[in-house]
């Protein structure tokens, strides 16, 4: 927004809404980093903290909802302001879902043994690192209103799909070696799938940002990587 509103308080309300989304985004990002860390290090002590941080994210979500409702009622936003308001609503929904997935992954650490094979963890870590980078990039593109960067994130989800496939294969491989691995390997399969789904929410955010900036949705279907058969 280059020009300011004639009504200063309107300007402030919009700024406050965008700031809330940015703050919620960075909270979601650190929660994802923490939960990934907990999985890779099989760090059972951090589980509670991660679960608790999800409450914070949920609170942000309802705060943003209230802000949006007030804005709609008071200002009846138009054009860029309308798109800013609607995309805040959508982005905060996706962030909340990413938070849920991070929490779910943290919970999966509990039953894991401390001696998981390095190759398996390596593949999972590569996937996690990419999803974290994707979230970081998409939030960056939101802060800087960078259309090209958001579109890049959207396209890069193909790599998330590919790494999900590889990570999934190594979990299945590990599982098939010994039946007693079955129990906690199931948790690892879910954790891998959760990361892939977090990736999908990130592409949703990228789509919302592109819509916010240009007023039209990205055309065509997103490039897809290898997909695990459901």
């Amino acid at each position: 927004m280059s020009n300011e509103h004639t009504v200063k308080s309107y300007e402030e309300e919009l700024r406050y809404l965008i700031d809330s989304v940015i703050k919620m985004g960075s909270l979601t990002e650190s929660q994802l980093v923490d939960s990934m860390d907990a999985v890779i290090k099989v760090d059972k002590d951090s589980i509670d903290k991660i679960i608790k941080s999800d409450d914070e994210i949920n609170k942000f979500r309802s705060k943003i909802d209230t802000q949006i409702m007030t804005l709609l009622v008071k200002r009846a936003p138009m054009a860029i302001d309308l798109r800013e308001t609607i995309s805040s609503l959508k982005i905060s929904q996706d962030l909340e879902r990413i938070g849920d997935l991070s929490k779910s992954n943290a919970k999966k650490v509990k039953p894991l043994p401390l001696d998981l094979p390095e190759e398996l963890l390596g593949n999972l870590k590569r996937l996690g690192d990419l999803v974290i980078k994707q979230l970081n990039d998409v939030l960056d593109s939101y802060v800087n209103k960078n259309y090209d960067k958001a579109k890049e994130v959207w396209e890069k989800d193909e790599q998330v799909d590919d790494l999900t496939y590889i990570a999934m294969e190594s979990v299945i491989d590990f599982l098939s070696k010994d039946k007693k691995n079955l129990d906690f390997s199931t948790h690892l399969i879910f954790a891998t799938k959760n990361l892939e789904r977090a990736g999908d929410h990130i592409t949703n955010i990228a789509e919302s940002i592109c819509f916010l900036i240009k007023g039209e949705y990205l055309k065509g279907s997103r490039p897809k990587g290898k997909v695990i058969q459901q």
Binding site: N3, E4, H5, T6, V7, P77, A79, E216
Partner: peptide, 19 residues
């Protein structure tokens, strides 16, 4: 016009940033 006008001046007017 009200969701995504082409002209900056239109946008400034309908969003209350004008003048």
């Amino acid at each position: 016009i009200f969701k995504n006008p082409d002209n900056k001046m239109t946008q400034d007017y309908i969003t209350g940033r004008f003048g």
